Amino acid sequence: MKLLQVRKGQFVYYKNELHKVYTINPLAKKSVHMYRIKDMEQVTSKAEEITLHRPSHMDAFMFMGQWYTIREDLEPEVDGYILVTKPDPEPMSHYGLNEFEKVEQIEGRTVVTGRQNPIKRKEFVVLQEGRNPEARNIAYQDASLVSEETLAEDAKLGAKLSRTQEIQPNIGDIYLNLHNGGRSMVVAVMGDDVWLGHGEKLKIEDLLDADHWTLVYVNTEFVL
């Protein structure tokens, strides 16, 4: 389905691969800013270059190198993931359409996530780890166009990203914020503290939290 109006959070296909829109810049020639869901690689495009996909029950896709299946018939579990498909946030909550959230607590029909968002059961679907044999593969719009080489790379992606997350931050490294799509460069490291280019100060353990940040560029010219 071609899009007449692009909305932040939408799942879309771009060059046959599943992406998520994280912001729209209407003044730019390529106004749609997205990341590829399987590995968080950022791209920009025009609205006419993408196709909408509405995630549904038994869709399976890769998120950060791991397969997940959307399940409407399962209940959430602590430390499991959910996908917010019908967001209705409270005033102090910070989440939107198709947010990936990790469950920290379960309080009746509401979960509290790692970002301290209380999310009602009617707002989300459960992400079951693994690719269910009966699920539809939505990682690609047309699987017949995917080369054997790409499939082989996908099979190794989880281990590759896992190793990347173990790398300690160094000056010049660039991290992607998984919740707002912003990129930030490490400009200083002192002890357990890291300073990012936009002025934010974090603990190293927070920057290495795979639920919030992912390393997208390693500066190999400067290593502490």
Rank of each mutant, 00 (worst) to 15 (best):
L4R: 07
L4F: 08
R7Q: 08
K8Q: 10
K8E: 11
F11S: 08
F11R: 06
F11C: 10
K15R: 13
K15P: 04
N16E: 11
N16T: 09
E17V: 08
L18F: 02
L18V: 02
L18M: 03
H19E: 07
K20L: 04
K20T: 06
V21D: 10
Y22L: 08
T23H: 14
P26E: 06
P26H: 01
A28P: 12
K29L: 12
K30R: 14
S31T: 15
S31F: 11
V32D: 04
V32W: 06
H33P: 15
M34V: 09
T44A: 08
K46I: 04
I50E: 04
L52S: 07
R54Y: 07
P55G: 10
S56F: 00
H57N: 14
H57L: 00
M58C: 01
M58A: 02
F61W: 07
M64A: 08
W67K: 02
W67P: 02
W67H: 07
Y68K: 00
T69E: 00
I70H: 00
L74V: 03
L74M: 07
E75D: 10
P76W: 02
P76F: 03
E77M: 04
V78Y: 02
Y81I: 03
I82K: 03
I82R: 01
L83I: 01
V84E: 03
K86R: 09
K86F: 13
S93L: 06
G96N: 14
N98T: 09
F100G: 00
E101W: 00
E101Q: 13
E104R: 14
Q105W: 13
G108P: 15
T110S: 14
T110I: 14
V112W: 11
T113Q: 09
G114E: 12
R115E: 08
R115M: 03
K120H: 15
K120G: 15
K120R: 13
K120S: 14
R121P: 05
F124N: 09
F124W: 13
F124C: 11
V125K: 00
Q128N: 05
R131A: 08
R131D: 01
R131V: 00
N132D: 15
P133K: 09
E134I: 02
N137F: 03
I138R: 01
Q141A: 10
Q141M: 10
D142I: 03
D142L: 02
L145R: 12
S147R: 07
E148F: 03
E149L: 10
L151P: 04
E153V: 06
D154F: 10
A155C: 04
A159H: 10
L161R: 04
S162G: 11
T164I: 14
T164H: 15
I167S: 12
N170L: 05
I171P: 01
Y175G: 11
L178S: 06
H179S: 02
R183V: 05
V186F: 01
V189E: 14
V189A: 11
G191K: 05
D192L: 05
D193Q: 11
D193T: 12
D193F: 10
L196G: 00
K201H: 06
K201C: 05
L202A: 03
K203Y: 05
I204H: 05
I204S: 05
I204D: 04
E205Y: 09
D209V: 01
D209I: 01
A210Q: 07
A210H: 10
D211W: 00
H212E: 08
H212G: 04
L215D: 10
V216Y: 13
N219E: 08
N219M: 04
E221I: 02
